[in-house]
């Protein structure tokens, strides 16, 4: 299969490819495929981790500090959910900045 074959480009080919790459103005990490997949994989764990941390802190306050079960857990989960949504919102916002920069450059 030629798909995985790696070959050394000729000098002219290399230069034209390098120019095309620069001219296109797209850095590898802004490649829409990687950026999109990256975002998709990130968001789920961010939401979940914040929820778990919030719930865990609430539970710990219940169990060791105030003996206020179940209110610490309830409030903790609500705060955790808010924190999760907040961090997802923030990372999507950052993505928007990258997309805007890309559009401005073209």
């Amino acid at each position: 299969m030629g798909l995985f074959k790696l070959r050394t480009p000729s000098r002219a080919e290399f230069c034209s490819r390098a120019l095309a790459f620069r001219g296109f103005g797209m850095a590898p990490s802004q490649d829409p495929l990687y950026a999109g997949l990256g975002q998709a994989v990130r968001i789920g764990t961010e939401l979940l981790a914040a929820l778990i941390v919030g719930g865990g802190l609430g539970w710990a306050i219940d169990a060791y500090l105030l003996e206020s079960a179940p209110w610490g857990l309830v409030v903790g989960l609500v705060f955790g959910l808010a924190a999760g949504i907040r961090s997802v919102y923030r990372s999507v916002q950052r993505w928007q900045v990258a997309v805007d920069n890309l559009n401005n450059r073209e």
Binding site: T45, E46, A49, A50, V53, F79, G80, A82, A83, G84
Partner: peptide, 22 residues
């Protein structure tokens, strides 16, 4: 402030869990 504290604590945890779990 509590919301941001939670999201700060969640950062290293989600970073570790994401790579490990995948």
């Amino acid at each position: 402030v509590p919301i941001e504290i939670i999201s700060q604590i969640a950062r290293p945890i989600s970073l570790a869990v994401r790579l490990f779990a995948n």
